[in-house]
Structure formats: structure tokens, C-alpha cells
Simulated assay, not measured.
Amino acid sequence: MKTIVKIAELRKNFGHEQALKGIQFEIKSGEIFGLLGPSGSGKTTTIKLLTGELDPTSGSLEVLGYSSEMFGRTEYLEKLGILSDKSALYERLTVADNLELYRKLYNTDKEKVDEVLEAVGLLDQKNKRVSKLSKGMKQRILLCKAVLHAPPLLLLDEPTSALDPNTRERIHEMLLKLKESGTTILLTTHDMDEATLLCDNVAFLHGGIIKETGSPEDLRNKYKRNVVHIKYASGLIKTIENSSENFNQIQEALFDQNLIEMHTDFPSLGEVFKNVTGKELI
């Protein structure tokens, strides 16, 4: 697979504060890569470095064959779709007028406006003024704006933060369809359930340092414990090491009429993050 994003020993300082402390990772063509961590971990700083909004203190960035010195070029920016905390719409214009402005800017086909609106379930809202839309609808329109010109790389900074479950599901469906079409996506989030659902690979970013990388499934397997959790009707929960020495005890529990639930330890991605960093993801 072709490497789309390559970051090596990337550092970013703001005065005496080190926001990024030598991170490195790669993103392959057509994958969804999750940069995961709590607020203040360095996720947004990384996005701003990739868009050229910030310059690195040291280290190297290469995106779509462009080095960071070339990130200001129009030809580079045209290859990106960006959704960040600075993304905005013209509130007094209609949905269609907002997207038409960007369609003309990128010289894409006129049909693309209806196409992206249909993808997020807002085609029937195209003639509504943006100021009349809910926050969730506006977020979907911002995503439409980011993908309107069919960029090969999407940089999405917390695209579903604070959205309702239905809107979040709509956006998830759209991102998975974009992946199927070959779009590469860098997604920053602190929602580990979202990352488990969407991402092919993830990196745990904490305190400006990448603590762990891998696929969600591989990381969950790597940090699982060899134990069995047993829950009884009384509310009692037992945790027993899954070993031959405890075979009789586990078998006895299996046939106990008061047994409610029995399962091996398979941590969530959030639990793995806590295991790796020693911190809750908040």
C-alpha cells in the first residue's frame, strides 16, 4: 500500500511548552487512521501542522508526496478535505449557496452539491438558510464542504464531538463509504467507541507523545488478561485466572443455576488507553 502521510520525530514547541515531543506514524492509502487522545494531548496541533497552519519546530512531515515546506501551495491544499474547529459556514446563505461557493472554488461538477447532501441525508434542506439549522445539521454540511471536491485525503478534527447519536451514525456511514471509494482519512477523536468502529489503525497520543499504535483489535488482544469474569444472580462477580489449575472451578460455575454471565477479559479500546497511559480518557 502507498504511504499517504509520513511523520517522523515531529516536534512542536510553543515557547517553553512542548505540544508534540517527537511523534511518528504513517498512514496508508485508503485507510482510516485514528489519532486518539484527550483534549490537550496534541491532536489538533498535529492537524494544524499537516494543513500548514503551523510550522514544525523539528522533524519531518510528508503528505501525498509534499514536504512541509510545500504545504502552503494551492495545489497541495486542493488535495485536502479539512474539518476542524475553525471550519465555518455563511449563516445568512442557504445550504445550497454555501456549497455552491466551494464547488466553484474547486471547479467541481454541479451535481456534486446534491450528491454530498444526499449522502448525509440533508438534500431536502438545501434551500434552508444555514442559521436555521441545528448544530448536528451544520456539522454534516461542514463535512459536505470538506468532501465536495473529492480530495484524496481527509483531515477530520473531532468531527462528531457533542453530536446526537443519530447524527453521529450518519457521519460514520458517510466516512465508511468514503473509505470504500479509496479516500484516506485521518480522524482525531477522544471517542474510543467511534475509533473501534471506524479505524483500521490508531495511535494513542498523550502529553505530546505517541504511547502505542496498532489496529483496535490487535491492541485489545495485546492488553487482554488471561482471566474469566463470572457474574451471579446475587450480584457477586468473581474473576478467576483462566488456567488448567482452575478448570474445575470454572466448570462448576458454568453449570451453576445462579450464573448470569461468564466471559473472558477483552478490554475496550478505552480500557487499553487507560492501561497504556495510566489516565482516563476525558
Rank of each mutant, 00 (worst) to 15 (best):
T189P: 11
I23P: 08
K145T: 01
S243N: 12
S39E: 14
K238F: 08
E111P: 01
D85R: 10
G34A: 05
I209N: 11
D109G: 05
A88V: 08
E212G: 08
L93V: 05
E75A: 14
Q139N: 13
D193I: 10
T46Y: 02
K28Y: 11
Y76H: 05
E26G: 05
E118N: 15
T189K: 05
E217V: 13
I82C: 03
R140P: 04
A162Q: 12
I4H: 01
L54F: 13
A203P: 12
S134W: 04
A162T: 09
L175K: 06
L105H: 09
R11N: 13
Y232L: 15
D124K: 12
G136W: 02
T188M: 07
N248F: 13
G278W: 02
P38C: 10
E115N: 02
L163S: 03
G59N: 07
S134L: 09
E78I: 00
P152M: 09
R220N: 08
L54E: 12
H172Q: 15
S244H: 12
S243I: 10
Q139L: 08
T51L: 03
A19V: 03
P56G: 08
L35E: 06
K224A: 08
T239D: 11
K231P: 05
T74A: 14
E9L: 08
E245W: 04
N242Q: 11
V120C: 05
E158L: 03
D114V: 01
N201E: 14
H149Y: 04
G72Y: 06
A233L: 14
G121W: 00
E91P: 04
A162F: 08
I141M: 06
K179C: 09
K211C: 15
E173D: 15
A162P: 01
I210N: 02
L93C: 11
G59I: 03
K135G: 05
V272F: 01
L10H: 00
Q249N: 14
G40F: 07
T57R: 01
E53G: 00
D164K: 05
A203L: 07
L54R: 02
E115R: 07
L186S: 04
S181N: 13
L83H: 01
L186R: 00
E17R: 14
V113Q: 00
Q24D: 15
K274F: 10
R220Q: 15
A88Y: 05
N127G: 11
K104Y: 08
K128D: 12
E271V: 07
L101P: 04
F14I: 13
I171C: 01
G65C: 07
N248A: 15
D55C: 11
N242I: 08
L236Y: 11
T3H: 07
S131D: 15
R92T: 15
D97N: 10
H190W: 06
Q139I: 03
T46D: 09
G207W: 07
G65H: 04
I171G: 01
I7Q: 04
Y232C: 08
D193K: 13
T51I: 07
G121K: 02
N242V: 06
M262L: 14
H229F: 13
T57E: 04
A150R: 12
K110C: 06
